[in-house]
Amino acid sequence: MKVEITIDRERCIGSGQCVHLAPQTFDQDDRALAFLKAPPGEPDERTLRAITGCPMAAIALKVGDTTVSADELRNWVTGLRSDDPLVELIGWSSESHHELREAMAAVATTGGDPSTMVELAQAHLAEEDGAYSTITELVDAALVEAFEADRRQIVQALDALGQPEPEGDPKRHDRSAIELAAALEEHIRLEEAVLFPLALAALADREASRC
């Protein structure tokens, strides 16, 4: 799933706030209008702050066909300070991501047994089931569906690895392990860069409205 940063240059007033907050991602032309440095790369915390800090809300994040506005990203750091159970679960997911990446790297480096990666992936998906039902209440349902489709690719790769290796195709499990690692990497990347920050932003907004 493609993640893009977009700038509405007709709305931009040249305040330079985005360049100040994320100079590695944004710059200004001779009219002081913002533009993206090429390539902008994966949006990190500083870039997300720049998106939410634009005084004209001229910068947005596009995930697939869904555009995520600055308002939807705002205050996600505040959400991180919440004592809501979702924050704890996202913290667990981050630790799980680290373990998965180590297992994926081991398979990629040695081409060895993918069983550890498979076990961690299964545990990760099982734990996420509860999280996704909560996240669905906080962010756009269409966006959650896009991530659910991503999860289904992981399940398909896990199913393929669980089947006996067909005769005449001794490398089938090796290819399935590579497909699983690729699907997991995409899943982790999109969760960390988009879904979790959006959920935390929505959580922060919900808490602010209660004050």
Rank of each mutant, 00 (worst) to 15 (best):
Cys211Pro: 04
Val87Tyr: 02
His173Trp: 10
Glu102Ser: 09
Glu102Gly: 02
Val139Tyr: 01
Asp169Thr: 07
Thr66Gln: 11
Asp83Ala: 14
Ala22Arg: 00
Pro170Asp: 13
Arg206Phe: 08
Leu73Cys: 14
Pro39Gln: 09
Ser133Met: 14
Phe196Pro: 02
Gly14Lys: 08
Leu200Phe: 05
Glu148Pro: 01
Val68Ser: 01
Gly130Asn: 11
Glu137Ile: 00
Ile13Thr: 15
Pro39Leu: 11
Pro114Arg: 09
Pro23Val: 09
Glu207Cys: 04
Asp159Phe: 07
Ser93Cys: 13
Val63Tyr: 06
Ala108Asp: 13
Met1Thr: 13
Thr6Pro: 00
Ala57Asn: 13
Ser96Gly: 14
Ser96Trp: 03
Leu161Lys: 00
Ile13Leu: 12
Gly162Tyr: 10
Ala106Arg: 07
Ile135Gln: 01
Leu80Arg: 11
Arg31Glu: 15
Trp92Cys: 06
Asp150Glu: 15
Arg210His: 08
Ala60Leu: 05
Ile90Thr: 02
Pro166Gln: 09
Thr109Leu: 12
Thr52Ala: 15
Lys2Gln: 12
Arg31Lys: 12
Gly162His: 07
Phe147Pro: 03
Leu190Ser: 07
Asp84His: 15
Thr66Asp: 13
Arg189Ile: 07
Glu167Asn: 07
Asn75Lys: 06
Thr136Asn: 05
Ala160Met: 08
Thr67Glu: 15
Met56Asn: 13
Gly79Met: 07
Ala106His: 03
Ala60Met: 04
His98Ala: 15
Ala181Gln: 01
Val3Ala: 05
Ala146Asp: 15
Glu128Arg: 09
Cys54Phe: 07
Ala157Thr: 09
Leu200Pro: 03
Pro114Cys: 08
Pro43Lys: 05
Ala177Phe: 02
Phe35Ser: 06
Ile7His: 00
Leu120Trp: 08
Ser69Pro: 06
Ile154Lys: 02
Ala177Trp: 01
Cys211Ser: 08
Thr116Trp: 04
Arg175Leu: 12
Glu148Phe: 06
Arg81Ser: 12
Ile154Ser: 00
Pro23Asp: 10
His97Asp: 14
Asp159Glu: 15
Ala204Val: 01
Ser176Met: 02
Ile51Thr: 00
Ala160Tyr: 05
